[in-house]
Amino acid sequence: MTSALVVHDLHLAVRNGQVLLPILRGINLNLPQGEIHGLVGESGAGKTMLGRVILDILPPSAVITSGNVDYPAHRSSPSLNRKSAHRRRPHISLIPQDPLTSLNPVKRIGKQMGEILRLAHKDSSQQIHERAKQHLREVKIRNPGQVLQQYPHQLSGGMRQRVLIAMAFSTEPSIIIADEPTTALDVSVQQRVLRLIRDLQKERGTTILFVTHDLGVVAKLCDRVSLMHSGMILEQGKVSDVFQSPSHPYTRSLLEAIPRYDKPREKLSPVANDLQTQLIREADEYDRQRRV
């Protein structure tokens, strides 16, 4: 199957005064079309940064020092954008982490969706309104007409996240970056939102890069998984393989840390400190070798 997204040996650094701090250290990814790829790693690993490279919304201080991002399934006219590492990219959507801050607080939902739809379609306002309603219905919102009239602060967290999912799918993207889309929601809502994303993805064959902390979610949702630490991918593979026979000690310790009802344990062991130190030392070592 053709790949939807290939990241090749990507290095990214952030400029801080005169120095460049490495954030991503040689990331390789290959997402076949129509797959959900889990991206797991602790806070600060660089997951969001990787997503921003793919979305081409890097902060001004970030510099791509080497590597590139490619979209083989979408390679119509390969014109290299000077400032980013992108070939001409297809439309990629983002489902963000925080549903409250990700909607514009001073605009009605209808207006926000309308603006996006208007970029793609030359329709009358009436038609745009109907489209927006339709998209809301697809994310199982029962009263779309009313929601379109409301401001973000008048909706519940779960509703807002549905709206954001509807927005993400409304542009018919071939790739979606979902950056911890359920972290801010409570558990019962999480399940429903996850099911929603999976159903829409199946229906449309969208490729999704799914960022999460939750290995349980990965097990249920994803086809493949990458484990990240300090801007490096430590382990990558089919979810079943990785879960059954993890090769990296970090993966093993993460899997052990999942609380399980069938195997009660005395104490929860978070990733051991010496392992953390070890990983950070490896990252430093990597930087030193790259420089020579």
């Binding site: 979305l55 439309h91 990629i92 983002l94 982490q97 801050t101 996006i116 954001l164």
Partner: peptide, 22 residues
């Protein structure tokens, strides 16, 4: 630097449009 602006940038709005309309 707010997230809704970051999101708007992924939705295909131009740079200037993100500033004045979002």
């Amino acid at each position: 630097n707010r997230e809704y602006v970051t999101l708007a940038r992924t939705q295909g709005f131009g740079r200037l449009k993100v500033i004045y309309s979002q």
